[in-house]
């Protein structure tokens, strides 16, 4: 048990140092690196999809497949929870 704690502490320290250094040396906050795709979506959202909300147009139009997978995950989770508790109710 004690050995496990030492191992966990070492692992946590390594991960923490790695995360802190990568947070300090990332590109500056507020200047994203890639521009083209998002700029295209910002420029063409109103004309192509007729929606003011750029996020909604991405969720349901430009990247509909992601939302399909998300809906599948939500459906599966709800079905799993209902199934897990249905057996107990009898």
């Amino acid at each position: 048990m004690n050995q496990r704690n030492i191992l966990a502490a070492a692992f946590l320290t390594i991960v923490a140092v790695f995360l802190m250094f990568s947070a300090l040396f990332m590109h500056p906050f507020g200047e994203p690196t890639s521009q083209a795709m998002d700029q295209y979506i910002i420029d063409n959202t109103v004309g192509e999809t007729g929606a003011n909300n750029g996020v909604t147009s991405v969720v349901f139009d430009y990247r509909g497949f992601d939302t399909l997978g998300e809906a599948t995950v939500l459906f599966t989770a709800v079905a799993s929870v209902v199934m897990l508790f249905r057996r107990l109710k009898k």
Binding site: G47, T49, G50, A51, N52, T56, S57, F60
Partner: peptide
């Protein structure tokens, strides 16, 4: 299915987005 005027959409634009919402 209306076309957005003045660069801003309205409640009756958006195509399938409101239906999917």
């Amino acid at each position: 299915g209306a076309i957005p005027v003045d660069g801003a959409a309205n409640i009756n634009t958006g195509g399938t987005l409101p239906l999917m919402n």
